[in-house]
Simulated assay, not measured.
Amino acid sequence: MEECGNICVATIGECGISVISPEGELVEFVETPDIFTTNICFGGEDMMDAWICLSATGKLVKTRWKRPGLKLEYLNK
């Protein structure tokens, strides 16, 4: 999830991440080079580093994201 409330959904078969607003609207689609993009999480000092699993190729990639994400719940405890 992004800090602003958008949900980032790994979109298998579409090669990327769909960003969906709280109202259910598609905010954007971020393409990846892998048909089995399966996960995304955020980190870094400003929470704008995104780690994305590219499962068909077995890669984990890091990229800069346009908006900050939320910390994983276990990090908030």
Score class of each variant (00 low, 15 high):
Glu28Ile: 00
Tyr74Ala: 06
Met48Asp: 02
Asn39Val: 08
Asp34Met: 05
Glu73Leu: 12
Val9Gln: 06
Val61Trp: 11
Glu3His: 03
Glu2Phe: 00
Gly5Arg: 00
Gly43Asp: 13
Leu70Val: 13
Leu26Asn: 05
Leu72Val: 05
Cys4Gln: 12
Pro33Met: 00
Thr37Arg: 03
Lys62Gly: 10
Asn6Arg: 04
Ser18Arg: 02
Glu3Leu: 01
Asn6Phe: 03
Asp34Tyr: 04
Asp34Ala: 09
Lys66Met: 11
Thr38Gln: 15
Ile35Leu: 08
Pro22Met: 09
Met1Arg: 10
Leu75Thr: 03
Tyr74Asn: 09
Pro68Ser: 04
Thr38Val: 08
Phe42Lys: 06
Gly5Trp: 02
Ala50Arg: 01
Gly44Pro: 02
Asn76Tyr: 01
Thr11Asp: 11
Met1Ser: 11
Arg64Asp: 15
Trp51His: 09
Thr57Ile: 14
Glu23Asn: 14
Gly24Met: 02
Glu23Arg: 13
Leu70Cys: 10
Thr63Phe: 06
Tyr74Ile: 09
Ile17Ser: 10
Val19Lys: 01
Gly13Leu: 00
Ile35Cys: 03
Asn39Leu: 01
Cys15His: 09
Gly5His: 03
Thr38Met: 10
Thr63Cys: 14
Leu54His: 10
Phe42Asp: 09
Leu75Met: 13
Leu72Cys: 15
Lys59Gln: 15
Val19Asn: 02
Trp51Ala: 07
Glu45Gln: 11
Phe36Thr: 15
Pro33Leu: 02
Val30Gly: 05
Asp34Thr: 04
Ala56Lys: 12
Lys71Trp: 01
Met1Gly: 13
Ile17Lys: 05
Val30Cys: 14
Cys41Lys: 14
Ala56Ile: 07
